[in-house]
Amino acid sequence: MGVKIDPLKCTACMACELACGYHRDDAFALLSSCIVVYRTRDKKDYFGVILKEEEDLVIARPEGLEVKRIGAVEEGGGGGDASAKPMLLREACDLCEDRDDGPLCKQVCPVDAVYLD
C-alpha cells in the first residue's frame, strides 16, 4: 500500500508538500518533503506531484499516474527520464508511520487528491 495522487483533482496547492516537510523536520519547511509539487511549467499550465518511495517514484502527471522503479533498467537500456537518484537527499515516504492518524499529506489535501492504494 502506498500514497497515490489523483492528478486531475490536484490543484497544486502544496499542502501535502508542506505537511510532509513538517513530518520530517517538526517545523515548516519544504526541503525534506518526499511529496513534491512540480510547478515550473507555468506558462503551459502543466503541473503534478512526485512522490519518492523506497523503491519507486510515483509521478502524478495530468495525463495519468506513472510508477517508475528507481534505478530500474529500462527496455532498450538507459535509465528512462527520471534521475537514477531522484531526490537523493530526501527520505522515502514512510507513510507517516509515527502518526496514529496515518499520512499527514492525505489528511490535509483539501480536495482529496491524495489517497492510499
Binding site: 490543484t11 496547492c13 499550465d45 483539501p110
Partner: peptide, 19 residues
C-alpha cells in the same frame, strides 16, 4: 478553461488557465 490552480495551501482553487 484548461485546469484550475490554487494559491499556496489554499483549499479553494481560485485561478483558472485559459488555453
Amino acid at each position: 478553461v484548461h485546469r484550475h490552480r490554487a494559491n499556496f495551501n489554499t483549499p479553494f482553487a481560485a485561478n483558472s488557465f485559459l488555453f
